[in-house]
Design a protein around this nucleic acid. Structure first.
Length: 538
RNA sequence: GCGGCUAUAGUUUAAUGGUAAAACCUCUGCCUUCCAAGCAGGUGUCGUCGGUUCGAUUCCGACUAGCCGCUCCA
């Protein structure tokens, strides 16, 4: 009997297991680690490779309409200017030191409040006078008529930013007991404030000046230099997405591979983003691996239907590697929040231990990317339509997913701690990773029942040698048999075959096949074992 | 980047101002006829750097990393 159960803190359990079993290590650990970077250990490397291979086989090799591509990680810097990443990845941010709020500088607006006319309040007059001497006093007061800046106001970007600023300015005028008429406000955003002004602009949270920091720029792209000289002309970027490779090589693929619309170009590769806050283990890291596909369609095609078909394809693929429906959902981006070039974006969400988060984004991008590159490079990115005899720029549907996010999802969905009751009634805990045979790092463990009986180990080694030609398998003769089963459970090995005395003493050359999830055993021949693997590991 | 909490063996945790302990894991040998058995043995720079102190794993500071919240994720 076994009872599946989720541990109280699933993430902690996963991080611990990942380290203990060689799935994921912190990067550069002996030097104290490096925030946002991770290494995949021997077991993790197999798991990750299997996820990539499954995707590539299903997305590229088993389809007629999609071809693969591998572009360089460092591309011409103009690629990222054309794509909008150089501008779009720079988000200057402002912190309020008192309220601990953070604002985007381009969404925080402010204005100097200037009042037309004479400053008549007693306090203000005295202040001005005290800085003057002798006969100059009256004269100087007079010349200050046109100087009365009474303060600053700020407001966040909204539909009524200007009204809000005006109201605040009016409040400020009354609060300071200043007579006169407000001059029209000159609204600027925070990126345009000088150092002196920053000290005087009030925080929208507190209404008091002096707590805002100067805007700090966070460019999400990692910069590097190409060539021996490090100057402005040699600046290059590590790609923040693989997609631009497909757009930039679009014409090459069209001209050299006989593809016809609709068709897709797929790529798997590393991308880099200098995330402000890497979080949640490998979910958001600074170096990660993407699997992206750009599906090009005719400009007159029914993009919405194509979009929906790809969403369904992606959902089915996630199921095929073992993610349960109970953890999957959809999020449709609201129209008003879409990027201006996007016609629609749907995210397939996964219920991670830390919340429901984006796993796979399927975006309808129109012809934005190809059009941008055509304009920036001066080379049209068009296809000739034989029917209408006209050239046009194709539109694109882009399913983009992170390998690391899938890997974390299969770990989270597959991890279980079960209470197992043995024959004597003792309850013990069993940790098991229920990974699909498609992606399991080890498909079969070959176990001689006893280590010190040569006929058993000889048969086991022979089987192991034969299996390993086609599948990732392990040979393990250490310790008691039950311990070896549990060891394989922890890395998600779907099957163990045990070479026992029946194998060598009885006719039929059968082994014990032990199944991971049910722990059930049955006898199986070598031919049946290979047939099972051929069917399940695809 | 800000705030709060944290850092002892591969993992999970103890104890201590006088150079550290347990369990599990792992490795070696013996044993073992199916679910983490037993026996014997091996494996440890208390995250890093500085300060206080005769002496710091322990107290203080900085840094690094992790968790939570804010922010960000085109």
């Amino acid at each position: 009997m076994s009872t599946p159960a989720e541990p109280a803190n699933l993430m902690e359990a996963l991080v611990s297991l990942a380290k203990r079993r060689g799935i994921i290590y912190p990067s550069s650990e002996i030097y104290g680690g490096l925030n946002g970077f991770f290494d995949y250990g021997p077991v993790g490397a197999e798991l990750k490779r299997n996820i990539r291979d499954c995707w590539w086989r299903d997305m590229v090799q088993r389809r007629d309409d999609i071809v693969g591509l591998e572009t360089s990680i460092i591309m011409h810097p103009k690629v990222w200017e054309a794509s909008g990443h150089v501008a779009g990845f720079t988000d200057p941010l402002v912190d309020c030191k008192v309220s601990k709020q953070r604002y985007r500088a381009d969404q925080l607006f402010w204005a100097k409040v200037v009042v037309e006319g004479i400053v008549v309040t007693q306090t203000t007059t005295e202040k001005v006078v005290s800085t003057l001497e002798g006969d100059d006093r009256s004269k100087h007061i007079h010349t200050h008529y046109d100087l009365p800046t009474i303060g600053y106001v700020s407001a966040l970007e909204s539909e009524r930013t200007k009204e809000e600023l005006f109201e605040k300015a009016e409040q400020l005028r009354r609060k300071k007991h200043v007579q006169g008429k407000l001059l029209p406000l000159e609204v600027k955003d925070f990126t345009e404030a000088t150092e002196a002004e920053i000290a005087l602009i009030p925080s929208p949270a507190t209404g008091e000046p002096g707590s805002l920091t100067p805007p700090r720029s966070f460019n999400m792209m990692f910069q590097t230099n190409v060539g021996a000289m490090s100057d402005a002309s040699s600046v290059a970027y590590l790609r923040p997405e693989t997609a631009q490779g497909m757009f930039v090589d679009f014409k090459n693929v069209v001209d050299t591979t006989r593809v016809k619309l609709p068709f897709g170009i797929a790529q798997i590769g590393k991308s880099f983003r200098n995330e402000i806050t890497p979080r949640n283990f490998i979910f958001r890291s600074r170096e990660f691996e993407q699997m992206e596909m750009e599906y090009f369609i005719h400009e007159d095609a029914d993009w919405a239907q194509c979009h929906e078909e790809w969403i369904v394809w992606c959902e089915n693929w996630l199921r095929s590697i073992g993610l349960p429906d109970s953890h999957l959902s959809r999020y449709t981006h609201p129209k008003e929040k879409l990027a201006f070039y996007s016609r629609g974006t749907v995210d397939i969400m996964f219920k991670y231990p830390f919340g429901v988060q984006e796993l796979w984004g399927i975006a309808a991008r129109g012809s934005y990317d190809l059009t941008q590159h055509a304009a920036a490079s001066g080379k049209p990115q068009e296809i000739f339509d034989e029917a209408t005899k006209k050239k046009f720029t194709p539109h694109v549907i882009e399913p983009a997913v992170g390998v690391d996010r899938i890997l974390l999802a299969v770990l989270a969905a597959g991890y279980a701690e079960e209470d197992v009751t043995d024959d004597k009634g003792n309850v013990e805990q069993r940790t098991v990773l229920r990974l699909s045979p498609r992606i399991a790092p080890v498909k079969v463990a070959v176990l001689p029942l006893l280590k010190n009986k040569e006929p058993l180990t000889a048969r086991a080694r022979a089987l192991h040698a034969k299996l390993r030609r086609r599948y990732a398998v392990q040979y393990d003769d250490g310790g008691a048999i039950g311990k070896r089963y549990r060891r394989q459970d922890e890395i998600g090995t779907p099957w163990c075959v045990t070479i026992d005395f029946d194998t060598i003493e009885k006719p039929g050359d059968t082994f014990t096949l032990r199944e991971r999830d049910s722990m059930q055993q049955r006898r199986i021949t070598e031919a049946e074992l290979f047939a099972l693997l051929d069917e399940q590991v695809y």
